[in-house]
Design a binder for these strands. Structure first.
Lengths: 129, 129
DNA sequence: ATATTAAATGACGTTAACGTCAACGTCATA
DNA sequence: TATGACGTTGACGTTAACGTCATTTAATAT
């Protein structure tokens, strides 16, 4: 169990950010008798997932959908079916992103090659003086 | 060569967005005698790179650094050296992201398996009635 | 018991990344 | 040549994702 400051320190975000995510319904920590928030291991895992999502440019709203809010009033079978469908879409999305990242890496590598060539050329010009 | 609307259509962004990127110095298209913007193949490639970066949560400022603006008042050798160093960092970052995405995909797949098991179970319960 | 220190809540401020609108210029074409 | 359709530059508006107070309450140390 963690306090809000401990968790914020570990994850390198502000306490405001954590409260903000709670406002948006992304996490719902327990409270102490004195009304302080306490975060379980599960809350912490959820926060990490949120942060990971953010690093890939997902909005908080998208992340909310991803971790399955909304659609709370369905029977279990229906819920599971929808979650599966959503999961498939996300998987396709992620595989697509992996391919794009590889392309990005290639872009950068080809830039690197050109730059190295130019540097080589500059060095040779220098030697000829 | 493309007009701004053609390019916007193809890339599925607004013309405002394209002009905004120009304001920020990320692209600098040529102009016609009548002051219209014209976009070359190179401009288009650059825009695609920008959009790709955005999809991974990079800010426009970071993208700007990535495609090598800033540091304009250095000699060429220095410029190239810095660009190379920056490129290496980005490459490491990207490779890291690829690994993270693979992990995210695994998370989702294992969730899927659990859900499918549960669905199977529900179906069998149904048959036994 | 009191002084710190940490937390909660609410309100307002800020920044990036555009959207929207007005006022005007220009190009094609009937 | 006039009438849309497309483009340009401001200028102001908007939204997401927080930051920054001020105020009040609770826990901890002395």
């Amino acid at each position: 169990m963690w306090s809000i400051a401990e968790l914020a320190g570990e994850l390198e975000i502000s306490t405001r950010t954590i409260r903000f995510y709670e406002e948006k319904g992304l996490i719902s920590p327990q409270r102490t008798p004195g009304n302080r928030r306490v975060y379980s291991k599960r809350d912490r895992a959820r926060l990490k997932l949120i942060l990971r999502g953010k690093r890939f440019g997902y909005s908080l709203e998208e992340i909310g959908e991803m971790i399955g809010m909304g659609e709370v009033d369905l029977d279990e079978r229906e819920q599971i079916t929808r979650s599966l469908a959503y999961g498939e879409k996300k998987l396709a999305d992620i595989r697509q992103r992996i391919e794009e990242l590889k392309m990005l890496a290639q872009d950068i590598e080809s830039m690197r090659n050109k730059l190295e060539d130019r540097l080589q050329q500059l060095n040779q010009e220098g030697e000829r003086s």
